[in-house]
């Protein structure tokens, strides 16, 4: 399910991981680090940027398990509920 939360999370991922052009439309279930080649050093910036965008505190263990856009959006929805 694609919704506003997923769109906001995607926008953050695209900006922080610098996924330009065609890569901005990456598959929602792709592993950001393994499949999309996002550098591991981006993880912390991604976490901090998502917290700022969504206005929530994201537990590190849950963030660590959420490696795709779908998983991040699901996590975000749970934290915003």
């Amino acid at each position: 399910m694609s919704d506003d939360i997923e769109a906001r999370v995607r926008a953050v991922v695209v900006r922080v991981a610098k996924l330009d052009g065609e890569r901005a439309g990456f598959a929602a279930d792709a592993d950001l680090f393994r499949d999309l080649g996002v550098e591991s050093t981006v993880a912390l910036d991604l976490l901090l940027s998502l917290e700022e965008e969504l206005g929530v505190s994201i537990p590190d263990d849950k963030f660590g398990d959420a490696r795709s856009l779908t998983a991040l959006a699901t996590l975000a929805r749970g934290l915003l509920a």
Binding site: S40, D60, G64
Partner: peptide
């Protein structure tokens, strides 16, 4: 300059 980002990934993983 890379301590925070690399440490985060290394410890978390």
């Amino acid at each position: 300059t890379v301590h925070a980002t690399k440490t985060y990934w290394q410890v978390r993983s």
